[in-house]
Structures are given as structure tokens and as C-alpha cells.
Design a protein around this nucleic acid. Structure first.
Length: 169
DNA sequence: ATCATGATTGTTTCT
DNA sequence: AGAAACAATCATGAT
């Protein structure tokens, strides 16, 4: 039996302590309509760069889990329209999952991250090609080996399932 | 009609 | 090392 890693279950304590709408959306305090500068998304106009090729951050295990959770949540709660509702419900359930259950999500997230690195590499390459608006970020990932010998844009990632023999029961 | 926001946690990135 | 931002989602509010 693969006993747990000594991770019992006693860390859930705080919950239901934040402003939340019962699933109904539309309760903003003051729309940030002041700064139209920001195109969209971005609580604060911090990084407003137009990088169409820039790969977005890979979804964390929680987000991977959320994607699936959202489907079910909406299926059983077609009336709920707010995203916050799923967010909270997902967060609650997420904490309810055990490490073993989160494992598959983490594994998937890890895959996403691996792809992200690859995409980022291609993105950096493009930036090298010809893209300087002026203040480009300092080139941090520019190993001498990445001289772009080949062009890999999308590679199929073989799914490597980890065999976890958890035969209890 | 279009953009922004609300909320969750995890990862990413910067300083 | 820590903090801040952002990743998806979806309907509604506001401009």
C-alpha cells in the first residue's frame, strides 16, 4: 500500500470569508472605466504589450482541474452564470482533492508547461528575427545552443502515462 | 457594441 | 526570496 506521504488532512480552515456573489454577476464596486488604456484583462495597467506570438502562461493544475470542473458545475448549475461561483466551488473542491487526485492534473499541467517552454523558445526566436519595438525585454533565455538550427513550431507530445499501481481495494 | 470585472489557486516572471 | 500579475471562464455593467 502506498501510504500517503504523510499528508494527512487538516489544513482546511478558512473559507467563506470573502466577498462573493451567490453566483450572480454584476456587483462591481466601480468599474475601472477610467483607464481605457488597458485593452482588456489586467487589473492594473502593468504589462500592456501586444505580443500576438507571445505564449500565455501554462494553466496550473488547478486550472486544468477547473476546466473540467466548470463543465460539470455548469451542467448541474445551468442557472449559475457568474464565474466567481465556479471559481469558489472549484477552489473548495480542489482543496478537497487528495494529492493522488491532483496528480493527474499536475501531470497535465506539467505537459502544458513543457509545451509552453517550447513555444516560448519559438517566440524568442521570432523576436530575434526582427522585432524590436524599442525596449524589449532583456534576453534571458538565449543559450548559445539555441541558434535556431531547426524550426519546430508544433510537436506532438507523446502521452506518457505514469503507471501508478494503486491496487488497494 | 465592446471592454472590464468578478473569483479561484498555481505558476510565471520580475525586482 | 518575495511580490505582483496573470492564466480561463461568462454573463452582466458601464461607457
Amino acid at each position: 500500500m502506498r501510504a500517503a506521504k504523510g499528508k494527512g488532512a487538516a489544513k482546511i480552515s478558512k473559507e467563506a470569508l470573502k466577498p462573493v456573489d451567490d453566483g450572480r454577476v454584476g456587483k462591481r464596486k466601480a468599474a475601472a472605466a477610467d483607464d481605457k488604456s488597458s485593452k482588456r484583462k489586467a487589473r492594473k495597467e502593468k504589462r500592456a504589450k501586444k505580443d500576438p506570438n507571445k505564449p500565455k502562461r501554462p494553466p496550473s493544475a488547478f486550472f486544468v482541474f477547473l476546466e473540467e470542473f466548470r463543465k460539470e458545475f455548469k451542467k448541474e448549475n445551468p442557472n449559475v452564470k457568474g464565474v466567481a461561483a465556479v471559481g469558489k466551488a472549484g477552489g473548495d473542491k480542489w482543496k478537497s482533492l487528495s494529492d493522488a487526485e491532483k496528480a493527474p492534473y499536475e501531470a497535465k499541467a506539467a505537459k502544458r508547461k513543457a509545451e509552453y517552454e517550447k513555444q516560448m523558445k519559438a517566440y524568442n526566436k521570432k523576436q530575434e528575427s526582427g522585432a524590436d519595438d524599442g525596449d524589449e525585454e532583456s534576453e534571458r533565455s538565449r543559450s548559445e545552443e539555441g541558434q535556431a538550427p531547426e524550426e519546430e513550431e508544433e510537436e506532438e507530445v507523446e502521452d506518457e502515462e505514469e503507471e501508478d499501481d494503486e491496487d488497494d481495494d
